[in-house]
Amino acid sequence: MILTEKQRDSLTELINIAFHRTTASLSELTGNRILLDPPKIDIVPIEEISEKLGEKLNKEIATVHQIFTGPVSGDALLLMDYNGAIKLASLVSGEDIELDYFSLSLREVLMEMGNILLNACLGVFGNLLEMHISFSVPKLHLEELDSLLDTLTIVNEELKYALIAFTKFRVKDSAIDGYLVIILGVASLEKLIEALERLG
């Protein structure tokens, strides 16, 4: 257990605020009512991430990936099942037919949605830690979960932790599972926990 119950509650609340902001932006952007379930939060050492994510994700996944830099740096990811991602992008962009492949337009839709969500969540951390964070342009990866995790764990200069927030996107009677994952070095994690303590 890395977080105390109280710290976890504060963190959940903070991410939930970011989610509210995101749903408002996404609903306005897409013209569809989009809701995000309150997040279920966990912080795990990066070695355990595969097991954690494997619970709800199949092998083929779609990932929106942004690198953030500044006093705190790391990777921010939105992970979804490949098919779930197609479904979400199709629903929000009002596709009238179901496709079983990811057209470039739908990929961009997912990237923009991921961008908004990740920016909102990282914005919350930036405020909390009172520091300025810059984000790279989002990239979309379509690959298997394992190979994605490999690329994240390969450069192992310091001990890394993953903050995982599980949620469901709700659009038009459908619920699509998604994971928000923020990967931080141990120093950044300590700063984060300290800041959470101050909040409590």
């Binding site: 500044g70 962009s93 337009s105 839709v109 990237m111 923009e112 961008n115 920016n119 810059s134 342009v137």
Partner: peptide, 10 residues
Amino acid sequence: GNSVILSQRF
């Protein structure tokens, strides 16, 4: 410091 992508669809 944000980077944004604006998709054609939207």
